[in-house]
């Protein structure tokens, strides 16, 4: 029997998870929207950010909240290197080859992590993990609340940058018409590089914060890639608002299903949602005129 209190708890945890998923999904959808490349290795960069956060704490005693300021620039740099080292060379290739490249990268990174860090589950055991915030009848662990809040703040900041700055307008222009943007004097290379820099860089915030609420292991990223895909596809590829809405829905549905039925059913929920979303609104939850 699900009481109101359990339900409320499921809603609160679900929304918190959803906010974290949202930031992961927004990075993925930004890269896709601008470059039309599906980055199957997105989750592996989250995994790297989680390890970076873990080792910052384990080796130097740096609190995850502070580690953000080290790990984010690191991830942004990785994004730039990814563009110049790999993606740039695959841009002219057919889509299927691009997918093979990012899928291969995903497997490579997982196995490199397995060799380097072994398969152990690692966690940052923070003292504040025992503290909670009461939201109505529900409780939210402090580290999770911080991660959710940071995600939402960063999404809001990204949205403002995309709306208000030249830089954001250039990204949106490229996403809506490549040739149109080029004829406006916008260099695609620079915009692509920045899109990956930011898309991957956002994981530098999620990673360290997540490492105190979720075990880090070499395969942790794959789970997030899958969920982020569900969210991004359901929300409409390249659509920012759709990704946020999709993420909150997936987080909620997962958590409520977990309370109602079992954890194993909860794990299937995102994919069931994807199928429903595809049948109901194949163009994405928030309909958007297709620019190409």
């Amino acid at each position: 029997m699900v009481t109101f209190d359990i339900f409320a708890q499921a809603v609160v945890s679900g929304l918190a998870n959803g906010a974290i998923y949202a930031l992961v999904a927004v990075g993925l959808t930004l890269v896709f929207g601008v470059m039309r490349i599906i980055n199957f290795a997105h989750g592996e960069f989250l995994m790297i950010a989680m390890y970076a956060g873990y080792f910052a704490w384990a080796l130097a005693g740096i609190d995850p909240v502070l580690a953000i300021f080290i790990v984010t620039p690191l991830l942004m740099l990785i994004g730039v290197l990814l563009y110049d080292g790999i993606i740039r060379r695959a841009l002219a290739a057919p889509e299927i080859n691009q997918m093979a490249v990012t899928l291969g990268l995903s497997l490579l990174l997982q196995n490199l992590a397995l060799m380097t860090f072994k398969g152990d589950n690692l966690l940052i055991p923070l003292a504040r993990a025992t503290e909670s915030i009461a939201i109505g009848p529900a409780l939210l662990q402090l580290p999770q609340a911080i991660a959710a809040l940071a995600s939402l703040l960063l999404i809001a900041a990204l949205w403002l940058v995309l709306r208000l700055t030249d830089f954001g307008i250039m990204m949106r222009a490229v996403a809506q018409s490549r040739d149109g943007a080029v004829l406006c004097g916008i260099g695609l290379g620079a915009v692509y590089r920045w899109a990956l820099c930011i898309g991957i860089g956002t994981l530098g915030i999620t990673g360290p914060l997540l490492a105190s609420t979720l075990y880090v292991n070499p395969h942790v990223g794959a789970l997030f890639t899958l969920k982020a895909f569900v969210i991004v596809i359901a929300g409409g590829l390249g659509n920012f608002g759709g990704a946020l809405l999709g993420a909150l829905l997936v987080g909620l549905a997962e958590s409520i299903a977990g309370a109602w039925f079992s954890a194993s059913i909860a794990a299937a929920v995102p994919f069931a949602l994807l199928i429903v979303a595809m049948l109901w609104r194949p163009e994405g939850l928030i309909a958007r005129r297709v620019a190409r």
């Binding site: 307008i169 809506q176 018409s177 040739d179 149109g180 943007a181 406006c184 004097g185 916008i186 620019a291």
Partner: peptide, 26 residues
């Protein structure tokens, strides 16, 4: 050399003003 392309190639989800801004970022 500026081109008004066939089919216009506008940025449909951007406002008119944003379309103008996009062409003056350099």
């Amino acid at each position: 050399i500026a081109t008004v392309a066939e089919g216009r190639l506008l940025f449909p989800d951007c406002t008119v003003e944003e379309n103008l801004v996009a062409a003056s970022t350099h």
